[in-house]
Design a protein around this nucleic acid. Structure first.
Length: 107
DNA sequence: ATTCTTACA
DNA sequence: TGTAAGTA
């Protein structure tokens, strides 16, 4: 059986650990879940377990809230920011694949 | 022993 | 907001 999670998405951090790492209140982390930005894993007893991906999004959300956005706006912005980043990576990969195919075709 | 979560009032 | 009961 291979691990269902990679390093970045492995649910390691408890609520208190995640909150102190980010310098935020536990309630803030919960509200990010309520707003749909985060979907932290759950322990057997229902406690949230945050991955490094979750922490990265939460840290960015805190920055955007500190910029003066409402929580809902910040969550939307962060979600879109991360989606754009993912799309950039996907596009770069697609370009690499195309280049490789061209090399094969003209060989 | 303390923290975390949900439910409910 | 606060309390209660069950987790981790």
């Amino acid at each position: 059986m291979t691990e269902p999670f990679d390093d970045a998405s492995y649910p390691l951090y408890t609520m208190s650990t995640a909150a102190s790492l980010l310098g935020v209140q536990p309630g803030f982390l919960r509200s990010l879940g309520d707003s749909g930005l985060l979907r932290p894993a759950r322990s057997g007893g229902g406690h949230r377990r945050y991955s490094r991906d979750d922490l990265a999004r939460a840290a960015r959300a805190r920055e955007v809230v500190d910029l003066g956005m409402t929580l809902a706006a910040a969550c939307r912005i962060v979600q879109l920011e991360f989606e754009v980043t993912r799309l950039h990576l996907e596009l770069a990969h697609a370009h690499a694949v195309i280049s490789e195919l061209r090399r094969h075709l003209q060989a």
